[in-house]
Design a binder for these strands. Structure first.
Lengths: 346, 346
DNA sequence: ATCCCTAACGTAAACGTTTTCGTGTTAGTA
DNA sequence: TACTAACACGAAAACGTTTACGTTAGGGAT
């Protein structure tokens, strides 16, 4: 087991100074061609690679991006990571991942672990618990220490930093308008509690769309699911609530669901009730994941372009990291949604 | 913007030496209680946190685990990451992620990027291209430099390192036996090319199960899908091949698919052919992802326990990292599969 | 007064780089 | 011959820690 070779060892072996070896490897013309070749040959032979940690310490930058997200077993978030990783890698950066599991404490701890030199900047999406508590001190502190943050999807106005969001409101609106145009008369929405910013915006889009067509929104058709506890039987609760909704409102002929799972569950309930999709009931979801694509019938959905969001976020962050200027202005990029029509609508 | 405070600054401010500050913060009894308190108060006030990079350099360990996987938008892999992250975090480790996208070159580059000091050890699953090329020099080199590797799922005999695998053969066997017991007479398998070790093993399990019941395997019922190119219309090709299989063998009444997507596609084809599931056709998949759970009808599947695999892998790695002894023996852990019965079988 | 011990602190090396600023040798020029 | 310039290289500092090993001053014992 030959340990990693260092400049010092090469220097000793070749009887030159460490500085000479370093310069030779970096093609400094200060060093004679002779020595340069000798050093390079030796380095190659022993697979010399500069130690990243030492470089990080010297340069005060790690070339590493920290990603902090609520969960990873989730199509949207993994798409975002993929997007980040791709552009990060292209620009010579690595990504390090922290999972908050929607917990405030884990979010804080993870941030502190990473903020102490391990990374150059954050890309993150806020946990539900943090959104509930309205406690953002860890973000503020991190920023005030000079470490840039880019937030995506779940963002918050209180923090001044770059943001990448989806046009949730307009995306939702587009979906509902589609249903209206498809002759749906009673459109329900399955959404989250309002503290989840994206859920709130999507609900708002739903209402605006209805208003635009002079339909007054019916509170009975708005189902806000409390998803704080993601337990095993969570799905069952969800299904029951949706079933209730349908039993109480048998004339529902269109549903807009703010995520895939809700949409699929609606399909399941519809099937149990013997409602034909899309003839008797049309459904549109949000987030274009595997479920939407492979459901039978496949699901019309509002695509969030997670990949692109990640890519944009990474670009924003890296740009800020590599720009000399201390421009304190924050940018907000809105990634357009796209309505992907499939079999669950006419 | 107050930059991160260092020992040096604290020392200067308090007019003591750096060493004194360091010792005071670490509760060395070498330092008087007076000074200790003073230093600690000051450190707390300025939110002092030791710089991880400096610590890494000094200790020659980064407390970071490198994960190298083919893709991340994939239920199984993200489950594994989740498992790894959980135990890693519990033991004070971070995880850094590299994606190979099934490409040999990206795998090698990513390894080299991470192996130069950024991490203490690897947990990885080999890319398809690497498996095809049989070129494992990067693994060997990394190991020979003293950096431990734990492989999971897609492993290879040529490399001596810890491994965590699933009992692919037995899992497949269990599934097929289930079909046999459920009175299926013509059981097909949708599998991958043989170079994917897990595909090969699962195919073997299929054959062994048949043999055990004195059924001779019919080559016409074995569909090996070439999934080298994961293009957009890949699904269409897949569907067409499966459709062909059914048209040529209309008496198929049971299918074992080596992954979720294949299984779902079989369901789609069956629907088009008007075959009732599970009455006329029973299906079992592999990997327990969202698709299996939420498909209609839901899919009976062999669960791989990705979470557990990740957790075990992390434990193996960390144990090796923290053990003084240079025990060169390699361990192989087999994580049991589990047949989860749902609606796609009787 | 001398010796020694101990408490409390400082010095310096080390981890592996890069880079600035010498410094010594050689060759060229007047 | 004497001076300068170019060349090739080395020494040392710096990044932020930890720690083995001084060093100093004071006090108690002899």
């Amino acid at each position: 087991m030959k340990k990693k070779v260092t400049l010092k060892q090469i220097a000793k072996e070749l009887d030159v100074s460490i500085a000479t070896v370093s310069k030779a490897l970096r093609n400094s013309k200060e060093i004679s061609e002779d020595t340069r070749d000798k050093v390079k040959a030796f380095a190659k032979l022993y697979h010399y690679r500069p130690n990243n940690i030492a470089l990080s310490l010297k340069n005060r930058k790690t070339k590493t991006i920290g990603i902090l997200i609520p969960e990873i077993v989730h199509h949207f978030f993994s798409k975002v990571i993929q997007g980040i990783e791709e552009v990060a890698n292209k620009k010579g950066y690595n990504v390090i991942i922290g999972l908050s599991n929607e917990s405030f404490d884990k979010e804080v701890i993870n941030m502190e672990m990473l903020a102490n030199g391990s990374i150059d900047g954050f890309i993150l999406s806020i946990s539900k618990e943090t959104l509930l508590k309205h406690d953002y001190h860890h973000f503020k502190e991190t920023i005030s220490q000079g470490m840039p943050i880019v937030m995506f999807d779940r963002v918050v106005n209180e923090i001044a930093c770059d943001k990448v969001v989806v046009d949730d409101l307009r995306g939702a609106k587009k979906a509902v308008i589609k249903l209206i145009e498809n002759k749906c008369k009673n459109i329900a929405i399955i959404t989250t509690m309002d503290y989840v910013s994206v859920g709130k915006l999507r609900t708002q889009g739903y209402i605006e769309a209805l208003n635009e067509f002079n339909i007054e929104s019916n509170p009975n058709l708005i189902l806000k699911v409390d998803d704080k506890l993601v337990s095993e039987d969570y799905i069952d609760v969800l299904e029951k609530e949706i079933m209730d909704l349908f039993l109480k409102n048998p004339d529902i002929d269109g549903v807009f669901a703010v995520n895939e799972l809700y949409a699929i569950t609606v399909m399941k309930v519809a099937r149990k009730l013997g409602k034909q999709i899309p003839e008797e009931l049309q459904i549109i979801g949000f987030t274009d994941g595997v479920l939407s694509r492979h459901a039978i019938p496949s699901l019309t959905t509002v695509s969030q372009h997670g990949n692109e969001m990640g890519a944009v976020a990474a670009e924003l962050l890296i740009e800020k990291l590599e720009s000399e200027s201390e421009d304190e202005q924050v940018r907000a990029v809105v990634v357009e949604t796209e309505l992907i029509e499939r079999e669950s609508t006419k």
